[in-house]
Amino acid sequence: MTIEETKIALPAVSQGFEKRCLLVRLDQLLPRKSLPKGVKHSKKYRQIATSIVEIGLVEPPVIARDPGNSSLFFILDGHLRIEVLRDLNQSEVECLISTDDEAFTYNKQVSRLAAVQEHAMIVKALEQGVPEERLASIFAVNIETIRRRKRMLNGVCIEASELLKDKNCPMAVFEVLRKMQAVRQIEAAELMINANNYSTAYIGAILAGTPQAQLADPTKPKQLRGMTVEAIARMEKELARLQQGMSSIQESYGKDHLELTVIKGYIKRLLGNARVVSYLLATRPEYVPELQSVVDMASSSTDI
């Protein structure tokens, strides 16, 4: 098959959202869930309300068209924002129209504002002249927290911040990263991503396992509470071995995943053949549960 034929054979990719936002009246929006009792007295509700009053709606609600009524829409994401707008006596809101009406699917894929993105927003707002006091009110934090978030990436290399720009890392993670040299910052970011662990405890363990020569200030000895020099040295060796093991797994993961998927499919087809199963039950009955366990195990871990 030629490249041109392959291109023709490829199915069209459907868009997840309509191309343009739509201005919708609030009385056209139908909730998919009821708000918890007392939510209007929560900190989150007050923070959203303050943000909308101070700077307007930053993230448009996501809605889907009601197939049974063209004038109505289901709310997929943004119930609190819409409730705040109602309390503010607003009559309409600009919404993003999803082509998928499943709230579960959308909420599973949506990415909330990460620390790096929040940092960029704060820096941009400050550059445009928004006072620190106003930002502190919007985010429901004190002014010192705004200042910490502003300087969060000071000393963090661009490559590491790019790797973590859409990850939900606590601000303290970046404060630990800046204690390492740039190359080690990138390695630490990759370790967190591979482990899907962005906690301060994990980045603290990575710092503990960082060789002295890879610290931002190699002349300053690491001082970790409750750990001796010998324990820190052992941790450095263990972390180095862990990195080597993860690198070797990454190199072969794609090939192993493909082989396991093919094997699973072949065994599944065999067990779907009544004649094959009858033969196995008659000659090798102990094979059947073992083969079925392979299919079940593969289904839970390798299906895409």
Rank of each mutant, 00 (worst) to 15 (best):
R112Q: 13
I97P: 01
N273P: 03
S247T: 11
L242F: 11
D217M: 04
S71F: 02
G265S: 12
A103R: 13
E59M: 03
A125G: 07
Q292V: 06
M180T: 07
V294T: 08
R32M: 15
A182L: 01
G68Y: 08
K108V: 10
A182H: 00
D101P: 03
I186Y: 02
R184M: 14
A201K: 10
I55F: 09
A103V: 13
G129K: 00
S98H: 07
A136R: 03
L191N: 14
R149C: 05
L215F: 05
D217L: 02
R151Y: 14
L281H: 08
L164N: 01
A115S: 14
N168R: 11
P67L: 00
A205D: 15
E290L: 13
L26I: 14
L85K: 06
S34T: 10
L239F: 07
D100C: 10
A125C: 05
F104V: 10
K44F: 15
L22H: 11
K255R: 08
R241Y: 12
G16E: 15
Q214T: 01
R275K: 14
A114H: 01
V288F: 04
K220R: 04
A140Q: 11
M1H: 10
T2A: 09
M297E: 15
A125E: 14
R32D: 15
Y202C: 02
Q292S: 06
S137N: 08
K179D: 11
V58N: 10
F73E: 07
A114F: 01
K7A: 15
L22A: 12
L135H: 03
C21K: 10
L80G: 01
R147K: 14
P61W: 02
R25C: 09
K150Q: 14
A136N: 00
D166S: 12
L29G: 05
S248N: 08
S299T: 15
Q292K: 05
I232G: 06
I138E: 01
L30G: 02
K7M: 13
A195I: 04
P31G: 08
E83A: 15
K44C: 03
M235D: 11
A140I: 01
L30Q: 13
L224R: 00
N107V: 05
T145L: 03
V116N: 03
E54Q: 13
D166M: 08
K264T: 14
L239K: 06
R225T: 07
I186H: 01
F74G: 02
E190Q: 12
M152R: 06
A216M: 05
S111I: 14
I267Q: 07
A274D: 12
E59G: 02
E259N: 06
R134Y: 05
R32F: 06
L72Y: 04
E190K: 11
I249P: 02
R65A: 11
A103Y: 04
P60V: 01
S51P: 07
L291E: 03
G68C: 06
Q47R: 12
R46M: 15
P61S: 04
R225A: 10
Q214L: 09
R234Q: 11
P289D: 07
A231Q: 11
E127C: 05
E127Y: 05
P11T: 08
E92T: 09
A274T: 08
Q90N: 10
H119E: 11
C95H: 05
D27H: 08
N142H: 05
T105P: 02
G68Q: 14
L85E: 13
